[in-house]
Design a binder for these strands. Structure first.
Length: 802
RNA sequence: GCCGAAGUGGUGGAAUUGGCAGACGCGCCGGACUCAAAAUCCGGUGAGGUUUACCCCUCGUGUGGGUUCGAGUCCCACCUUCGGCACCA
C-alpha cells in the first residue's frame, strides 16, 4: 500500500459490505432500533445529480454512527417511479414507461452504489411494482370505505390544440408548454380525498413531534386554521348568501358583498339578475387566471356589480349591493365575503375604485387614507350595541347575538382544501373502482388486487379529457363485482403522491404478500426516528403522508399517531455560478465524474463540508480538491504511527474535545464543523510529527461515517483489530474537555484592550488586580472614572469608564 | 401577492446562542524541495493607518434606526436573493 488510490479500495469495500450483508437491518427485535429515512428519489432519465447525495450522505453518517452505538439500524431506499416526466418521455420516444423506469432505476442504482451508502438494499421498494401498488390501492379502498374518497367537479388545465389535460407546470404564462396554444379551464368530475377531516389533528399533533420550527410553521400556515362566524345575508325570501368572516365585530361596517364569479347563486337567481351576459364575460376572464394571480394584492381590483338583486345586512337591515370579483375564491370559505372597506385592505381598494361607502366602525386609524386593520388597539364606533367595546369583546358579543337570533354560527375554517386525487394519465396506479349503472361505484374486490395497468401499444392521452385508459375498451369494460352486470372501470389514475404517502411503512416488511406490513414489524420499527428531506416537500408530501398515516392509525392499522418523530431539511446544491443546476444553464455536475476523478470518499467529505447543511450552496471544484487533499493527508498518517494504547498527554484534551464535537455535530446537522475539527486534529498530528495507535484508531472511527472506504482500508491494512464497522463509537470524558486555564479578553467600554490568562475558577478580585497592572489597559483608564465593572466568568471582563 | 428562510473577507463558510468577528477549506502572495514543473511541506493573507520591529489604533457581518457595559446574534423599518403556493417531484 503506497499512495492513496480510491479506485483500488472503494469497489473492494462495497463488495465486502454487500457480500456480508453488513448494513441489512434485522427483524429480530432484541436490540434497540433506529429508523433513518431519506426521501426516496424519482428515477429521472437524467441520472443522479450532485444534489441527491447530500441528504443521503448526511443520514448515512447518522446510520453508521448509530450502528457503532449498538442500534439495529434501518436505512432503506426505493423508487418513487410513477410520474409525468417518465410518461412524457415514453410517449415522445415510443418506449413503454415500464421500460423507461427500469432503465432509469438501473442507472440510479449503480450510481448510488458507487457512493458507498449503507442502504439496506434487500428492502428496496418501487412504487410502480404491482406487488407494491397493490397496497397503495388497498389503502385507497380503505379510504373509500370510510367515506374519505368522493367525487367532485373541479377544473383542470386543458390545452385546446393538443386536446389534453395539462399539469400546472406545463402551463407557462397561460400557454401550453408543448405547443404554445391556449389553455383553458375545463370541468372534470374527479376523485377527492377528504384531508380536511384531518385538519385539526394535523395541526394539533405537530406538538407530538420534533420537526425543525420552520417546517412546523409552514405546515400550520398551509392548513390555515381560523376561527370566525358564518353569517347569513338574505337576498330574497328563500335565497341567502352565507359568508365566513373572522371579523364579525365589523358587521356594521359591511357596505357591500363580493362573491366568487363561479358562485352557484348567480345561476340560481338568473331570472332576477339583469346583467347575466356581463357576469358570464367576467367569469370567463377570471377562469383563465390562477388562484394566486387572482389574489395578488398589488394588482388593480376588478369586478362587476350584480344588477337586480341586493343583500340585507343582518345587523341593521340595510340593503347592500353584491359584486363578483376574482379576488374572492370559490375554494376558500363559502366563496362569498362581506366587505368591510374601513378595516380590510383589499375591500378598501375595491371600494375606492367602485366608489362604495366606507364606514369607520373601529376607531384608531384614518380610513380616509387606508384601511385600519390593527385589532389590538381599536374601540368600536358606529356599531349600535357594540359601541365602546374593544375589538375582542365586540367579537364575542356579536357572535353570541348572531347565534341567539339564528343569523349565524361560530365556525372554524381552514385554508386547506381537499386533495384532488384523480389524474388523466396512464403512468399511475389505476383507481380500483368500477361503475355499475345499477349499483353505482363498486370496489374492486381485495383479492383481485393489484389491479394492473393494461399492456398496450399506445398510452397517449385521449382528445376528450379522459385518461388514456379510457381508450382501452377491453380493460374498461368489465362486470360489476356486486351484481355481475356489465360495468365500466374508473379510468383515472392516482397522483404520484399516493405511492410516496406510505412507502416508509412498506420498508418495515417489504416482502410480505399477506398484508402491507406485519403488525409486529410496524410496532418495532415505527415511528421513523429521523426523516430528512427537501424544504420543497414541506407542505404537500409531508402533509399527505401524515394524513394517510393518521387515517391508518384511526383504523388500528399502524401503531403510531405520527409517522415521523423528527424532520429536518437540507439546502439545494447550486451550480458553480450560483444558479440552480440545469442542462439549459450548462452548470450540471455529474457525480460519476467526481467519483472517477477523486473517489467516493472525497465526494462524501465534500458534500458534507461544502457549507451549512440547511442552506443552499454553490458547487466548487476547488473545494472538492481540498477535501481530496485532506484524505491524502489522512492516508499519509500511516507513516507517522507510533505505539501507544492511551492518548498522549499533549493530545488528550484535544482528543476528548474532538470526540465530543464530532459526536454532537453529527446529531445536529453540523457536518461541516465536525469535518473541520477532524481536519484540525490531523493538522495537530502533523505538527507533532507523530500519532499513536490509540489516537489513530479513535480518529479513524470518527471519520468512518463520512469516509467509510479509506478508513476501513487503513484499519484493516494496519491490522488494528477486526473490521472498523464492527467497532463501537468512541466516548469522551467531559472533565477532559474543559481547560483549567483560559485566556479572557479585557474590555474598556466594550472594546477589547487586552487579554489575560486566568484559571477558570479565578474570581473578580483576582482578575481586577492583574487588570490594573496592565499597561495598555491603564492607558485607557487614565484620567477617567470607573463607573462599573462586569465580569462574566470564563467569558469577559469589561470596565465601563466616563 | 401570500407563507417560510437567508444576507459575514477575493471565495464556501465558522462564531460556545448577547461576550476576542473571520475556525476549517479554497484562492492568492512569499519561501523550501527540484535543472525545471507538478505534487508536497513551511509562512502570510478583512480594509485602512502607524512603527526599524514587537506592538498599537480606526473602520468592518445587506441598508437605516433602536435596546445594552457589550449586538453578526435582540427589537423596528427597508432592500436583495432563495423555497412553496395544491396536476413537477
Amino acid at each position: 500500500m503506497s499512495n492513496y488510490n480510491p479506485e483500488m479500495i472503494e469497489k473492494k469495500w462495497q463488495d465486502i459490505w454487500e457480500e456480508n450483508g453488513t448494513f441489512y437491518a434485522s427483524d429480530e427485535k432484541s436490540k434497540p432500533k433506529y429508523y433513518a429515512l431519506i426521501e426516496f428519489p424519482y428515477p429521472s432519465g437524467k441520472g443522479l445529480h450532485v444534489g441527491h447525495p447530500r441528504p443521503y450522505t448526511a443520514l448515512d453518517i447518522v446510520a453508521r454512527k448509530r450502528r457503532m452505538q449498538g442500534y439495529n439500524v434501518l436505512y432503506p431506499i426505493g423508487w418513487d417511479a410513477f410520474g409525468l416526466p417518465t410518461e412524457n418521455y415514453a410517449i415522445k420516444n415510443k418506449i413503454h414507461p415500464k421500460e423507461v423506469t427500469k432503465k432509469n432505476v438501473a442507472k440510479f442504482k449503480s450510481q448510488l452504489k458507487s457512493l458507498g451508502l449503507s442502504f439496506d438494499w434487500s428492502r428496496e421498494v418501487n412504487t410502480t411494482d404491482p406487488e407494491y401498488f397493490k397496497w397503495t390501492q388497498w389503502i385507497f379502498l380503505k379510504l373509500y370505505e370510510k367515506g374519505l374518497a368522493y367525487k367532485k367537479t373541479t377544473s383542470i388545465n386543458w390545452c385546446v390544440d393538443c386536446k389534453i389535460g395539462l399539469a400546472n407546470e406545463e402551463v407557462v404564462n397561460g400557454k401550453c408548454e408543448r405547443c404554445g396554444g391556449e389553455v383553458v379551464k375545463k370541468d372534470k368530475n374527479q376523485w377527492m380525498l377528504k384531508i380536511t377531516d384531518y385538519a385539526e389533528k394535523l395541526i394539533n399533533d405537530l406538538d407530538l413531534v420534533d420537526y425543525i420550527e420552520r417546517v412546523k410553521i409552514q405546515q400550520k400556515n398551509w392548513i390555515g386554521r381560523s376561527e370566525g362566524m358564518e353569517v347569513n345575508f338574505n337576498i330574497t325570501e328563500d335565497k341567502k348568501i352565507k359568508v365566513f368572516t373572522t371579523r364579525p365585530d365589523t358587521l356594521f361596517g359591511a357596505t357591500y358583498m363580493v362573491i366568487a364569479p363561479e358562485h352557484p347563486l348567480i345561476n340560481e337567481l338568473s331570472d332576477k339578475i339583469k346583467n347575466m351576459d356581463e357576469l358570464e364575460g367576467y367569469k370567463e376572464k377570471a377562469n383563465k387566471k390562477s388562484d394566486f394571480e387572482r389574489t395578488e394584492l398589488v394588482k388593480e381590483k376588478t369586478g362587476v356589480e350584480i344588477k337586480g338583486i341586493k343583500a340585507t345586512n343582518p345587523v341593521n337591515g340595510k340593503e347592500v349591493p353584491i359584486y363578483i370579483s376574482d379576488y374572492v375564491l370559490m375554494s376558500y370559505g363559502t366563496g362569498a365575503i362581506m366587505a368591510v372597506p374601513g378595516h380590510d385592505t383589499r375591500d378598501w381598494e375595491f371600494a375606492n375604485k367602485f366608489d362604495l361607502p366606507i364606514i369607520e366602525v373601529v376607531k384608531g386609524g384614518d380610513i380616509e387614507k387606508e384601511a385600519f386593520t390593527d385589532i389590538d388597539n381599536g374601540v368600536m364606533v358606529n356599531s349600535d350595541f357594540l359601541n365602546g367595546l374593544k375589538v375582542e369583546e365586540a367579537k364575542k358579543k356579536i357572535s353570541d347575538w348572531l347565534e341567539e337570533k339564528g343569523l349565524g354560527e361560530r365556525k372554524i375554517n381552514y385554508k386547506l382544501r381537499d386533495w384532488v386525487f384523480s389524474r388523466q394519465r396512464y403512468w399511475g396506479e389505476p383507481i380500483p373502482l368500477v361503475y355499475c349503472e345499477d349499483c353505482g361505484w363498486v370496489k374492486v374486490p381485495e383479492e383481485e388486487l393489484p389491479l394492473e395497468l393494461p399492456e398496450v401499444e399506445s398510452y397517449e392521452p385521449t382528445d376528450n379529457g379522459e385518461s388514456p385508459l379510457a381508450n382501452i375498451t377491453e380493460w374498461v369494460n368489465t362486470t360489476c363485482p356486486k351484481c355481475g352486470k356489465d360495468a365500466k372501470r374508473e379510468t383515472d389514475t392516482m397522483p404520484q403522491w399516493a405511492g410516496s404517502s406510505w412507502y416508509f411503512l412498506r420498508y418495515t416488511d417489504p416482502h410480505n404478500d399477506e398484508e402491507f406490513a406485519s403488525k409486529e414489524n410496524l410496532k418495532y420499527w415505527l415511528p421513523i426516528d429521523w426523516y430528512n428531506g427537501g424544504m420543497e416537500h414541506t407542505t404537500l408530501h409531508l402533509l399527505y403522508s401524515r394524513f394517510w398515516h393518521k387515517f391508518l392509525y384511526d383504523y388500528d392499522i399502524v401503531p403510531t399517531k405520527e409517522p415521523y418523530q423528527k424532520r429536518t431539511s437540507h439546502g439545494m446544491i447550486l451550480g458553480e455560478n450560483n444558479e440552480k443546476m440545469s442542462k439549459s444553464r450548462g452548470n450540471v455536475v455529474n457525480p460519476d465524474e467526481i467519483i472517477e476523478d477523486f473517489g467516493a470518499d472525497t465526494m462524501r467529505v465534500y458534500e458534507m463540508f461544502i457549507g451549512d447543511f440547511e442552506k443552499s450552496v454553490p458547487w466548487s471544484q476547488n473545494g472538492v480538491k481540498g477535501c481530496r487533499r485532506f484524505l491524502d493527508r489522512v492516508w499519509r498518517l500511516k507513516d507517522s504511527i507510533v505505539d501507544g494504547d492511551k492518548y498522549s498527554k499533549d493530545l488528550e484534551s484535544n482528543m476528548h474535545k474532538t470526540i465530543k464535537k464530532v459526536s454532537e455535530d453529527f446529531e445536529n446537522l453540523k457536518f461541516n464543523t465536525a469535518i473541520a475539527s477532524l481536519m484540525e486534529l490531523v493538522n495537530n498530528f502533523n505538527s507533532k510529527g507523530e500519532v499513536n495507535k490509540k489516537e489513530f484508531k479513535t480518529f479513524l472511527t470518527l471519520l468512518n461515517p463520512v469516509a467509510p472506504h479509506i478508513t476501513e482500508e487503513l484499519w484493516t491494512s494496519l491490522d488494528l483489530g477486526g473490521m472498523l464497522n464492527e467497532q463501537s463509537w468512541p466516548e469522551w470524558d467531559e472533565d477532559k474537555t474543559v481547560d483549567n486555564e483560559i485566556e479572557i479578553p479585557i474590555q474598556v467600554n466594550g472594546k477589547v484592550r487586552g487579554k489575560l490568562k486566568v484559571s477558570v475558577e479565578a474570581d473578580k478580585e483576582e482578575i481586577k488586580e492583574k487588570v490594573m497592572n496592565d499597561e495598555n489597559i491603564n492607558n485607557y483608564l487614565d484620567g477617567k472614572n470607573i463607573v462599573k465593572e462586569i465580569y462574566v466568568p470564563g467569558k469577559i471582563y469589561n470596565i465601563v469608564v466616563k
